[in-house]
C-alpha cells in the first residue's frame, strides 16, 4: 500500500473532525460572550451525524443534488495541496498556490449550481451575494499572496512553509521566521480577507438569517445539508490552514492545530461583537482599505527585498 493513498484517505477525515471541533468550541465561546452556557463542544458532531442519517425528502433536479457533492469534492481536492504543518502535502509543485486559489472557488461555484437549480430566491440571492463577496475579498487576498510570492520567490505552498522553518522544540520558540513579521501589512490584509472567506461577521451576508433565511441552505435538507455542514467545516480548516501555512508556517505538527484554532478564534472575536455589512458596503470595504494596504504591502515587500 502506498502511504499517499493513506494520506489521501486520512486527510479529509482529520480535517472534517478538526473543522467540526472548531465550530463546536467556537459556539461555546460565542455562547459565553452572549452570557449563555451554550451547547456541548461535541454538539456539531451529533448534528452532522443526525443530518447525514436523515432522509432527503425533496429534490429539485440533478444539479440540485450534485451541488453539495461538487462543493465537497472541490474542498477535498483542495485539501490535498494544503500542508499539515511542516508535513508536506500529498501534491506539491511549483505554482500550486495559484491552483489552490482556483480550487477554493470550486466549492462555492458548485453550490451556486445546485442552489440555482433550487430556484428559491433566498438561495439565489445568497449565492449571488457569495460570489460578489468572493469578488470583493479575492482581490486584496491575491495581492497579499502576491507579496508573499515576491518575498519567498516561490509559488509552492510547501516551499513557503519551508522558508519559514527554523529549529523548533518545546522550549525554544523560533516563530520569528514567520512571514507575519516579515510582511506585517500583507498578513493583516490576508486576515481581513480570511474573515470574509470564513463568512464570519461582518461578512456573513451569504447566510444572513434575518435577511434571506440562511440563503443557500434554505432549500436543502437531510444529507445535503449534512454535506454542506461538512463542507463548511472543511472550509474552516482549509482557510485557517492556508493562512497558518503562509503566514505562521514552519512549525511542527503539534503546533499546527493550536495555530489554526487561534486564527479561527481571532475571526470569532470580531464575529461576536459586530453586525453585518450590507453586501454593497462589504464590496466597498474590501476594495477600500484592504486593497490599498495590499498594494502598500507589495511596495513594502519590494523595498524589503532590495
Amino acid at each position: 500500500m502506498n502511504i499517499n493513498i493513506l494520506y489521501a484517505a486520512l486527510a479529509p477525515i482529520v480535517a472534517i473532525l478538526l473543522g467540526l471541533l472548531y465550530i463546536g468550541i467556537g459556539r461555546k465561546i460565542i455562547a459565553r460572550l452572549q452570557r449563555r452556557y451554550g451547547p456541548p463542544f461535541y454538539q456539531q458532531y451529533i448534528d452532522t451525524i443526525k443530518l447525514l442519517a436523515k432522509k432527503t425528502v425533496s429534490s429539485h433536479g440533478v444539479f440540485f443534488s450534485l451541488g453539495p457533492i461538487m462543493g465537497l469534492a472541490g474542498s477535498m481536492v483542495t485539501l490535498l495541496f494544503i500542508p499539515f504543518g511542516s508535513a508536506a502535502p500529498l501534491l506539491s509543485f511549483h505554482g500550486d498556490i495559484i491552483l489552490v486559489m482556483y480550487l477554493v472557488v470550486i466549492a462555492p461555484l458548485g453550490m451556486a449550481l445546485g442552489v440555482g437549480e433550487g430556484s428559491n430566491p433566498n438561495g439565489s440571492i445568497g449565492m449571488a451575494r457569495g460570489l460578489t463577496l468572493m469578488l470583493a475579498y479575492e482581490v486584496p487576498f491575491v495581492l497579499a499572496l502576491f507579496s508573499v510570492v515576491l518575498y519567498t520567490h516561490t509559488t509552492s505552498i510547501a516551499q513557503i512553509v519551508q522558508s519559514q522553518a527554523g529549529e523548533w522544540s518545546l522550549l525554544k520558540f523560533h516563530g520569528f521566521n514567520w512571514l507575519t513579521f516579515a510582511l506585517p501589512i500583507s498578513a493583516i490584509v490576508a486576515d481581513i480577507c480570511l474573515q470574509g472567506m470564513l463568512g464570519e461577521k461582518p461578512f456573513d451576508q451569504v447566510i444572513a438569517p434575518h435577511e434571506i433565511a440562511s440563503g443557500p441552505m434554505v432549500e436543502y435538507g437531510g444529507k445535503y445539508l449534512g454535506m454542506m455542514v461538512i463542507n463548511h467545516a472543511l472550509h474552516i480548516y482549509i482557510e485557517t490552514a492556508l493562512f497558518v501555512d503562509i503566514f505562521l508556517g514552519g512549525g511542527p505538527v503539534w503546533f499546527f492545530i493550536p495555530a489554526t484554532f487561534s486564527v479561527f478564534i481571532l475571526s470569532l472575536i470580531i464575529n461576536g461583537v459586530l453586525p453585518r455589512f450590507r453586501i454593497g458596503q462589504a464590496l466597498k470595504f474590501y476594495w477600500g482599505v484592504p486593497l490599498i494596504l495590499a498594494v502598500i504591502g507589495i511596495i513594502y515587500t519590494m523595498v524589503v527585498i532590495k
Binding site: K201, D204, H210, L274, P275
Partner: peptide, 13 residues
C-alpha cells in the same frame, strides 16, 4: 433590531 442587523450578542444579552 440588533438581530436584524446580524448582531446576535445583543439579543442574547
Amino acid at each position: 433590531t440588533a438581530a436584524t442587523l446580524g448582531l446576535y450578542t445583543l439579543p442574547n444579552w
